[in-house]
């Protein structure tokens, strides 16, 4: 028997309101549902910061949440499940958007990356998002309110494809604060791809990092990467103010 596996890239935006369940958490739940409880290693959610501007309607941050899942479900089946979950979990005042591509099918990666990068710098419209999605081969849909979340959903998809944007949602829990670990140990115990500095240089496996707080990862060069910074002559994991810039 041959099983067909699809590799879907899914992005959602504007599902929440202040004081309600966040879009990131809803994204994680959809990832679990669509992957039928068997999350693949690539199913981590990336958070992509978009432009904050008075002419843009956003809840509190204007960020989109994107993830990749391998699934036996078709794009249409996954979409149906994602919509059902969004409708169940979304805030009353939300304007949700949902963008999906099948990475095994044709799509215009360049156009999507351009749209994503532009959405970090300038205001764009829902009509433009739909046009770009149609031209680029993206399944883009809105699910309540103004539907303006389609802009962020499409932009987040493009930024994930770009591979050099965003923070990985969640924290890496297996380290003890104040302890020193080799890069090899950090990679082994957390499952990230590598450990990098703020210039995107990967640290050698033998280099040492002191864990000073919650370990977080960023998405750089298409890899799940622990970010570190120099402090008092040694490497430490990035603080939140540095992570904010990603």
């Amino acid at each position: 028997m041959t099983l067909t596996t699809h590799s879907l890239l899914i992005c959602i935006d504007d599902t929440d309101d202040i004081g309600t369940k966040g879009t990131g958490e809803i994204a994680q739940e959809i990832a679990m549902i669509v992957s039928e409880g068997q999350l693949s290693r690539c199913a981590f959610v990336t958070r992509h910061q978009l432009l904050v501007h008075p002419d843009i309607a956003y809840t509190s941050h204007n960020s989109a949440m994107c993830f990749q899942v391998r699934t036996r479900l078709s794009l249409a089946q996954a979409k149906m499940l994602a919509i059902a979950h969004i409708k169940q979990q979304m805030a009353a005042a939300a304007d949700p958007g949902l963008a999906i591509i099948d990475l095994h099918q044709a799509f215009d990666e360049t156009a999507l990356i351009e749209f994503g990068l532009a959405a970090k710098q300038q205001v764009t419209t829902k009509a433009n998002a739909y046009q770009v999605a149609a031209d680029a081969g993206v399944d883009l849909s809105e699910h309540g309110g103004t539907g303006d979340g389609v802009i962020g959903a499409l932009a987040g998809l493009g930024l994930r494809l770009f591979g050099n944007d965003g923070r990985v949602k969640g924290q890496l829990l297996t380290q003890q604060v104040g302890q020193i670990y080799s890069v090899a140990q950090l990679i082994e115990t957390t499952g990230v791809d590598r450990v990098i500095d703020a210039k995107d240089n990967a640290l050698a496996l033998t280099e040492l990092v002191m864990v000073t707080g919650k370990l977080k990862a960023v998405y750089r060069q298409h890899q799940n990467s622990i970010l570190v910074m120099p402090l008092a002559g040694q490497w430490v994991n990035a603080d939140k103010q540095l992570l904010k810039t990603y």
């Binding site: 966040g22 990131g24 958490e25 958070r47 509190s60 941050h61 923070r167 949602k169 969640g170 924290q171 707080g213 919650k214 603080d239 939140k240 103010q241 992570l243 904010k244």
Partner: peptide
């Protein structure tokens, strides 16, 4: 406190 992923101050 907001979701930990949205915090920017240690």
């Amino acid at each position: 406190a907001d979701d930990e992923d949205e915090q920017v101050d240690d």
